[in-house]
Amino acid sequence: MFSALDIDLRPGEGFGVFQIGTSLWTLLDALRRHPYTYPQVDIKYDPDASAVTPIVVHVRPHLDLVFSGKQQRLHTICIRKLRDPNPPITVRYQGNILSSPDHVLRRVDVSKVFGPTYPGDELRYPGVWFSFDEDRIAEGLKVPHTEDRTQEVKRIIISQIDTEGKEHGALDEVEECSAMAGELMRAVIKVHDGVTLYFSPSKTSSPLHIRIGETTAQDLQLDLGPPIHVHYKDDERMKIHASITASEPDEGTGYFYNYFQYGLDFLISETTHIVRKIVIHTNVPGSPLFQRYKRCNWEIEGKPEDDEDDTPPRKRFFDRFETISHFLSPRAPPPSMSLDRTADEDSLQLPNATTHLHGYDGIILEATDSSQIVSITLF
Rank of each mutant, 00 (worst) to 15 (best):
Ala4Val: 05
Glu13Asn: 05
Phe15Cys: 12
Val17Lys: 12
Gln19Leu: 13
Ile20Pro: 11
Leu24Cys: 04
Leu24Trp: 05
Leu24Asn: 05
Leu27Asp: 10
Leu27His: 03
Leu28Gln: 11
His34Gln: 15
His34Cys: 13
Tyr36Ala: 09
Thr37Cys: 02
Tyr38Gly: 11
Gln40Pro: 01
Asp42His: 14
Asp46Lys: 14
Ala49Tyr: 08
Pro54Tyr: 12
Val56Thr: 15
Val56Arg: 07
His58Asn: 10
Val59Ile: 14
Val59Gly: 07
Arg60Cys: 06
Arg60His: 14
Arg60Gln: 12
Leu63Met: 13
Ser68Ile: 11
Gln72Val: 05
Arg73Ser: 08
Thr76Tyr: 03
Ile77Val: 14
Ile77Gly: 06
Ile77Phe: 07
Lys81Pro: 00
Lys81Thr: 10
Asn96Phe: 02
Leu98Ile: 02
Leu98Asp: 04
Pro101Trp: 04
Asp102Gly: 08
Val108Glu: 14
Val110Met: 03
Ser111Ala: 07
Lys112Gln: 14
Pro116Met: 11
Gly127Met: 00
Val128Phe: 03
Ser131Tyr: 04
Arg136Pro: 00
Ile137Ala: 06
Lys142Thr: 12
Lys142Arg: 09
Val143Tyr: 05
Pro144Gly: 01
Gln151Val: 01
Glu152Cys: 02
Lys154Met: 15
Arg155Gly: 02
Arg155Thr: 12
Ile156Met: 04
Gln160His: 08
Thr163Asp: 11
Thr163Gly: 01
Lys166Phe: 04
Lys166Gly: 05
His168Ser: 07
Ala170Leu: 15
Leu171Gly: 02
Asp172Thr: 06
Glu175Ser: 12
Cys177Gly: 12
Ala179Leu: 08
Met180Asn: 08
Met180Asp: 10
Val188Trp: 02
Gly194Arg: 08
Phe199Glu: 14
Pro201Ile: 02
Pro201His: 02
Ser202Thr: 13
Ile212Tyr: 00
Ile212Lys: 03
Asp219Gln: 13
Asp219Trp: 08
Gln221Asn: 07
Gln221Glu: 15
Pro226Ile: 00
His229Tyr: 01
His231Gly: 01
Asp234His: 10
Met238Trp: 14
Lys239Glu: 13
Ile240His: 05
Ile244Met: 02
Ala246Asp: 14
Ser247Trp: 13
Pro249Ile: 06
Glu251Pro: 00
Phe256Lys: 07
Tyr257Trp: 08
Tyr259Ala: 01
Gln261Thr: 03
Gln261Leu: 02
Leu264Pro: 04
Leu264Arg: 09
Phe266Ile: 04
Glu270Arg: 02
Val275Cys: 13
Arg276Asp: 00
Asn283His: 09
Val284Met: 00
Pro285His: 11
Pro288Cys: 09
Leu289Cys: 10
Arg292Ser: 12
Tyr293Lys: 06
Arg295Trp: 03
Cys296Trp: 01
Glu301Tyr: 04
Asp307Ala: 13
Asp307Asn: 03
Thr311Tyr: 00
Arg320Ser: 12
His326Val: 07
Phe327Met: 12
Leu328Asn: 10
Leu328Trp: 05
Pro330Phe: 09
Arg331Thr: 07
Pro334Trp: 09
Met337Thr: 15
Leu339Thr: 06
Leu339Ala: 11
Arg341Ser: 09
Arg341Met: 15
Asp344Pro: 00
Asp344Gln: 11
Glu345Pro: 00
Leu350Met: 09
Ala353Pro: 14
Ala353His: 05
Thr355Asp: 14
Thr355Lys: 02
Leu357Tyr: 07
His358Asp: 02
Gly359His: 04
Ile364Leu: 14
Ser370Phe: 06
Ile373Glu: 08
Ser375Ile: 03
Leu378Glu: 06
